[in-house]
Structures are given as C-alpha cells and as structure tokens.
Nucleic acid binder design. Structure first.
Lengths: 119, 119
DNA sequence: GCTTGACCTGGATCCGGCTCCAGGTGAGAT
DNA sequence: ATCTCACCTGGAGCCGGATCCAGGTCAAGC
C-alpha cells in the first residue's frame, strides 16, 4: 500500500497542489487520508481516480458532470450500467469534438493555401 | 453589396447579438457600419471575418491571439507571411488537440470495456 | 398615431475553474 | 536548537469570455 505525499501526487497527476485540494474540497476526490500531522497521503486508488478525472477534464467534461460520475462510483457496483451510459455518452461528445476540430482544421488549411497562393 | 441586420448576422454566424457587440467593442471586429438610426448593418466581409473568428474560437484560440491576428489582417497584405505563420502554428496545436482527444478516448473506451467485463 | 419589437449604450454581473494569500504547524537537515 | 520547507486552512481574488440590465431610440404594421 504505497502512499504519496502531496508533492508526489502533483508529480504523478500533473495537477497542481491547489487543484488537488480544490477537487477534494468540492468532493470530486473523496477525503484523502492524512498522516499524524494532518498532511495528505494519497493512495494508489486516489491517483488512479485522478487519472480518470484528468481524462474526463481534458476531454471537456464539466466538473458538475464529473461530480455526478463520482457519486455513481461511490454508490457501488450496481451503478456500473449507469457509469457505462455516462461514459458512452461522453465518448460520443469526444467523437464529435474530434470531428469538429478536423473540420475546422480543413478551413484553416484552405486559408493557409489561399494566403500562399496570393504571395 | 448586401448588408445584414443584427438578427440576420446572428442567424448567419451563430454568435449571439451580445457576442457580436462584444467582439466589436474589444476590436475583434472592426466598427460595423450603421444605418441612419445607428443600427448595425453587417457586410458580407464582416460575416466572412466572423466565419474565421468562429473557426479560430472553436479550435481554442484565445481572444488575445485572435486580436493579434486581426491586427495583422488590418495591417495589410504585407503581413500575409506572418498570418501564414500564425495559422500554421495554430494548425499544429489543433493537430495536437485532436491527437490528445483520440488518446483520451482510448482510455474512456478501455474503461467502458472494463465496466462491461465486470457486469 | 400607437404599439411592438428590434435595436442602441455603458456598465455591472455571472460563471467555471482554478489560484493565491495570510497566518500557522510540524519534521527533518545543519 | 533552529531553520527551512512542505504542508495545512478558510476565504478572497482572478481570468477569460461572455451575458444581462436599465433606460432609451427608431421603424413598421395595424
């Protein structure tokens, strides 16, 4: 059962310490274990959940929805079908984002070509 | 020389009227023509520039950078090489965004598969 | 000739998501 | 022993990007 100091958690997750504290405060992260001095000691599980959070955040899921997902996770195994639904829905949005970006990119490339053509 | 009322510009660009006014106020849009009553009359050119803005915005370019690009456009033809550089750089970032989303999407899909496997 | 309804303005406000601050504690290095 | 440094807390502040508001002006249909 390895534990991670705040500095290590920052290193591993790429979130700032302030952000980790903020996520704990708003309940996106369950209350993190503490040592005798009251300092946080992150578990492997915390880090793995933070990996999920990073993934959802970086694909544009709003915090409010991540909170809902977090509740499902906490509520236990019986919510797995719901979690699948949430992730599938999100997956579709990510797909749409990619398609949209690719489309916009074509516009940008046409513009670049146009600019080259008038040089 | 067709002109567009505010409502038509909203319709064409997908921006809200407030946003169009805001873009004009901050200088992302050059001062739009007015009719005798002081109401905006957008030109084809305005709409086409707004198309560019939409593309840049939807690909995540911050307003500050769009403003810099707008200045290049206003400064005249001799800035075309600079504009190409800006767009190429942005194109690379868009490419990176797409790659990142695709990577995150794989994570999500692995998670979905995992959830399915434990049902 | 009145009433709608689309506009106008400057400025305040909101929102999500952090980020920073002051003031304090405890543990390890010198 | 003392210093430093990583931490802690609650709460304030910031930033980007709009969005909303009050109070006012025209234009056009009935």
């Amino acid at each position: 059962m390895t534990v991670y100091t705040p500095a290590e958690a920052v290193e591993e997750t790429g979130f700032t310490l302030d952000t980790l504290r903020y996520y704990e405060k708003i309940g996106l992260l369950e209350p993190v274990e503490r040592n005798a001095a009251g300092q946080r000691r992150f578990s492997e599980e915390d880090l793995s959940w933070l990996g999920m959070i990073r993934c959802l955040r970086d694909t544009g899921m709003p915090i409010a929805e991540m909170l809902r997902f977090a509740e499902l996770v906490r509520a236990g195994e019986h919510t797995i079908p719901d979690r699948i639904r949430v992730l599938e829905e999100h997956d579709r949005r990510v797909q749409a984002q990619i398609a949209n970006l690719a489309e916009r990119q074509r516009y940008i490339n046409r513009k670049i070509s146009y600019y080259r053509s008038v040089l």
